[in-house]
Computed example of a mutant assay.
Amino acid sequence: MPDIALYQPDIPQNTGTILRMAACLGLSVHLIEPAGFALSDRNLRRAGLDYLDQAAMQRHLDWAAFESWRKAEGRRLLLLTTAAATAYTDFAFESSDILLMGRESAGAPPEVHEAADARLIIPMRPPARSLNIALAAAMVTGEALRQTAQFP
């Protein structure tokens, strides 16, 4: 099944929501630190409810540690970004993909863009710029699961 990765997340409620979704769907979440909040944050717990204990979360000390792990695993990295040209609905997902979300406040830095095997966008009508990261993660994860027939 695809995994979700969060690059230095800023907002605990979004991370909690994504962890809850992942727990319900049986997905793993990779948290690339540093996060902008303590993982014991009550807002994280509130958004994740009682699903956080069921969530498969792997913490990576930093981007280099995550990249080292990912390359050793031979996994494809797909970055969701407003700077992409390929719509997620036009992309062929594989079950071993990692769907990477950038920081809510700043997206992903150039070295993360360069490391991505593909960069995907959720098409929106102007002048809209972006969606909430948890909503974007849910949309793209749903399409990846649909294409790879991985629904629980």
Rank of each mutant, 00 (worst) to 15 (best):
I4S: 00
I4D: 02
A5W: 11
A5I: 13
D10W: 01
I11Y: 04
N14W: 12
N14E: 07
T15W: 03
T17W: 11
I18H: 05
M21H: 08
S28W: 02
V29H: 02
V29Q: 03
H30E: 01
G36E: 09
G36V: 10
S40N: 14
D41L: 10
R42I: 10
R46C: 07
G48H: 02
D50I: 00
Q54E: 11
Q54I: 00
A55H: 02
A56R: 15
Q58G: 06
Q58L: 09
R59Q: 13
H60C: 08
H60D: 09
W63P: 05
S68T: 15
W69A: 13
R70L: 11
G74P: 12
R76E: 01
L78A: 10
L78I: 14
L79D: 03
L80N: 11
A83E: 15
T86A: 10
T89N: 05
T89F: 03
F91C: 07
E94M: 09
E94P: 00
D97T: 05
D97N: 08
I98A: 02
R103V: 00
E104F: 06
A106R: 12
G107P: 06
E111D: 13
E111W: 00
A116R: 03
I121G: 01
I121A: 12
R125N: 12
R125W: 06
R129C: 07
I133W: 01
A134T: 12
A134F: 09
L135I: 15
